[in-house]
């Protein structure tokens, strides 16, 4: 039969998900004995043509991290889908679009303009921007063209399972993987390693009454280490974020940012958080309601930090 074949690929990714795979430390040595890694760009020197040469469905499990930002990402997603029995969207970017998905609030034209022309420290008098091809004396160099908007993996191919997190919790991801290797078959589309309830359920902080008068940025106060962040006026995405991470960030003294994505019943994480937050502010007049709205510096960036491309609107509408 042979050892199970595992592939890992990074699309539009920061590399953190691959690092999380290494997070299990010394256990990695044992696991590597039991599986055959056939493709892993960050660590091993397999080429695309090696993947193309594999028979269809010959990869047992493929961990695909990163969002679909350019044509190369899209091509690899489709290729790996063909070649894999089980395709897992690994990490927030592949599952929901991730932080890179915030680029969807701009058009491609605006992105290029900002990055290569407008940022304060850019000096680019010739207006040089990256091109899809450029001729050099050795031949032609190609850069994969960007798609108009970033997409999560499931908008491009069918995904079997999701492992959330930015990055996922290494230990839990490996447990899930081993279960799959052993032959467990959760229903297609299951979000593995995640709770059915939100982060509040595993948060150690004390909750009293969800009523706030105003918001505070985390640098503006010295937060009480025992009390719920939200009850102190500090935005914490915990109530609207799926649990399973064991509230690591909160235990480290920081409010949740929402990387595990929405609760099981919820399609749009950002809208639910917006509603919950606006509902618990004590407001006695229309003026106060306006002022509260103004006090949230960047609503989309806060509420959709990881989930914009998989939200209801997905991207800039106009």
């Amino acid at each position: 039969m042979g050892k199970p074949k595992i592939a890992c690929y990074w699309a539009a990714s920061c590399g953190g998900c691959d690092v999380s795979v290494l997070d299990i430390g010394s256990k990695l040595a044992d696991i590597v004995e039991q599986v055959e890694i056939v493709f892993w760009p960050i660590a091993l020197d397999f080429k695309y043509k090696d993947v193309e040469a594999m028979p269809d469905q010959s990869i047992d499990i493929c961990l695909f991290n990163g969002g679909i930002r350019n044509e190369e990402n899209e091509h690899m997603a489709k290729l790996l889908r063909r070649k894999s029995k089980i395709l897992i969207a690994y990490g927030a970017c592949a599952y929901l679009g991730g932080i890179l998905g915030l680029a969807n609030l701009a058009t491609l034209k605006e992105l290029f303009s900002r990055v290569y022309r407008e940022t304060p420290s850019t000096v680019n008098p010739e207006n040089t921007v990256p091109q899809p091809t450029v001729k050099v004396k050795e031949g032609e160099l190609k850069l994969s063209p960007l798609l108009e908007y970033l997409k999560p993996l499931n908008e491009v191919v069918e995904v079997d399972y999701y492992i959330p997190g930015c990055p996922p919790v290494g230990e839990k991801a490996w447990e899930a993987l081993i279960a799959l290797i052993k032959g467990e078959k959760p229903p297609k589309g299951t979000v593995l390693t995640a709770d059915e309830r939100t982060v509040c359920d595993s948060c150690p902080r004390v909750k009293e009454e969800k009523k706030i008068k105003e918001l505070k940025r985390i640098y503006q106060v010295i937060p009480d280490p025992e009390k719920c962040f939200l009850e102190q006026g500090i935005i914490c995405m915990g109530p609207a974020t799926r649990g399973g991470c064991d509230a690591q960030c909160i235990k480290a003294g920081l409010p949740c940012k929402g990387c595990f994505g929405p609760a099981p019943n919820v399609e749009d994480q950002g809208a639910r958080m917006l509603s919950a937050l606006a509902s618990i502010v004590e407001v006695n007049s229309e003026e106060e309601a306006k002022r509260f709205a103004e006090s949230v510096a960047d609503p989309a960036g806060t509420f959709y930090l990881f989930s914009l491309p998989s939200s209801m609107l997905k991207r800039r509408v106009k």
């Binding site: 609030l105 950002g270 917006l274 509603s275 937050l277 606006a278 509902s279 502010v281 407001v283 006695n284 229309e286 309601a289 306006k290 509260f292 709205a293 103004e294 949230v296 960047d298 609503p299 989309a300 960036g301 509420f303 609107l313 991207r315 800039r316 509408v317 106009k318």
Partner: peptide, 21 residues
């Protein structure tokens, strides 16, 4: 209606980021 109007103003602000006037 106080809850509604608070959600409304915050939502309006966010929708602007999506290009919705």
């Amino acid at each position: 209606n106080f809850k509604a109007i608070t959600r409304y103003y915050l939502l309006k602000k966010m929708l602007q980021q999506f290009g919705i006037e």
